[in-house]
């Protein structure tokens, strides 16, 4: 099982990055998690030329080649960071690798709420027609007080949250296997991958 873990921020200090590093190491037997950064991706401004910039193409290829994607997002002003939305806009505007891709959303925050609002926004965004990701339903992993959640060698101190993540991750693995059967013969893949506002305007299924 190959998974991509996307760090939802460009900040050098990130508890979400530590959470993904913990998962990569903790679940190394069940899956190979590659952690991807998004800080190299240029600012999206709806260019005429729809070919993906190099950094976007690299990320897109990894997502396309993966069995599933884990988004780890902080919460900036009750929503996902601009830099994460920026990456998503490029993906939806160019190569659209997230169509029918199983996705797991997790988040870590300094405060107690554990990015609950950002995760709700991310869900709505990833379900937009231009993205059409398959988000694992009714699993919301919120890691509050993340600053103190890991010891020096990266193990999670809060046992209850560690156990909850184990359950959620196991469920995600089974969700990935389940969706493979579901989407194998889906007609979505024949339609052109190129995003077009006209299709959105006419409410066509894309």
């Amino acid at each position: 099982m190959k998974l991509v873990g996307i760090v939802g921020t460009n900040s050098s200090e990130s508890t979400n990055r530590r959470l993904l590093q913990y998962m990569r190491q903790h679940y190394s037997e069940q899956a190979e998690i590659e952690i991807c950064e998004i800080d190299e991706i240029p600012v999206f401004d709806e260019p005429e030329d729809k070919t993906a910039p190099q950094a976007v193409q690299v990320l897109s290829d990894k997502i396309a080649a993966s069995d599933g994607v884990i988004f780890a997002t902080p919460e900036y002003d009750h929503s996902i960071p601009a830099v994460l939305k920026n990456a998503i806009e490029w993906l939806s505007y160019t190569t659209r690798p997230l169509i029918n891709k199983p996705v797991m959303i997790i988040g870590a925050s300094l405060g107690a709420l554990g990015t609950s609002r950002a995760q709700a926004h991310l869900r709505q965004i990833l379900e937009a027609p231009e993205l059409k990701a398959l988000i694992m339903p009714n699993v919301e992993y919120l890691l509050g007080r993340a600053l103190e959640a890991f010891d020096d060698d990266g193990n999670m101190i809060y046992e209850d949250k560690a156990k909850e993540l184990d359950n959620d991750f196991t469920e995600f693995l089974s969700f990935v296997k389940l969706t493979e059967k579901l989407t194998a013969n889906s007609k979505f893949f024949e339609i052109s991958k190129q995003f077009s506002w006209k299709q959105v305007a006419n409410g066509e299924d894309m």
Partner: peptide, 10 residues
């Protein structure tokens, strides 16, 4: 994508 553009959030 059902939300505000990244540039505005930035």
């Amino acid at each position: 994508n059902h939300s505000i553009p990244a540039a505005l959030k930035s």
